[in-house]
Amino acid sequence: MNRCSLLLRLIVLAVVPGALAGQDVAKQLDGRVSPDVRKAVVTIAADAAARGLPVAPLVEKAIEGGAKGVPADRVIAAVRTLAGRMGDAMSALRAAGVVAPSGDVVEGGADALNVGLTSSDVRDLVRVSRPPYDASLTLRVAATLVALGVPPDQALQLVNAMIKAGRSPGDLLTLPAEVQAGVGGGATPGQAAAGLARAAAAGRPPVPPGQAKTGKPVNPHRP
């Protein structure tokens, strides 16, 4: 086999998976979004896949926009923004030493950037997320704390304090509910987070203001 033939085959090997991924994206979007959105998202997804970014969140965002009746240009803009945010998250993850992050971690990083955390915040959170702490978990918990109104630096402090105190990943997941309980008790999100961080640093169980009487976090979704 001559060199040209081998090169051609390698090119086919590199291109065919991307083309198949594009077909798959188009198929998933069929009947759920307008043809314009479908065409644009296929292109954005192919570009994202070529950069090693997960495609599923992009498809999901387009479907969400279609279901909500959002105008096509806004859906395309939102998908493009998400792709850019995932690219930024990927860069932050690589800066943290993660060579090949999973799609879930990249998406978690994008969620964190979406609520206002910076790339360096993402990088720092990933660096402290050693087993048993999954980076996607710490990123999403921090993002949710910020979404609840906790200032970003305090959200990071709280997550860091919990990790340093050796609290379980399950304990990390309860933080947003505990902050909510604190807010329900009259504290600001920042005060609730600060109380939880102090408790973690002191090795006490996480009991924020407003929760001491009942001992039960506010949780509207508990089965």
Partner: peptide
């Protein structure tokens, strides 16, 4: 439940 920007100018609720 807490909510985040959905990218379309609205909000989505979060549940873990």
């Amino acid at each position: 439940a807490p909510a985040v920007n959905d990218g379309f100018g609205r909000r989505n609720s979060l549940v873990a």
